[in-house]
Amino acid sequence: MNEQQSETNWLDSDNLYPLEYLAEISGLSIEEIDDLVSIGLIAPSAATAERPVFQLCHVLTVKKARRLRDDFQLNHHGVALALTLIRRIDELQAELTALRAGLGR
């Protein structure tokens, strides 16, 4: 057995990272991530900054985009559409969970 501690980041932390960092850990190109930003699927945190910076939670979205692109051979329109629909389903699922929690079993 091999025990180790390493640099750990919870992906909801408030630290901000540049676009290049998202590209590096997701494997998407800068252009592909720019595309997700222009569609509004991820949003930079500080609009005032010269360089856009992102919360680490957006890593999940860009990684998901990469998976969808690679696993289903989608183009960028397809990826954007799939991400939009998945997000809507997540919102509906959260609402359903909240309703069910309140109703009792």
């Binding site: 091999n2 640099e7 980041n9 992906l11 909801d12």
Partner: peptide, 24 residues
């Protein structure tokens, strides 16, 4: 190879939350 990682659960942790262990 079997590895064991020690992880601190942060305040506000939730189902589905992800932790990134960089370079591991």
């Amino acid at each position: 190879v079997a590895h064991v990682f020690k992880i601190t659960i942060p305040n506000g942790a939730a189902d589905g939350q992800r932790l990134r262990l960089a370079g591991q």
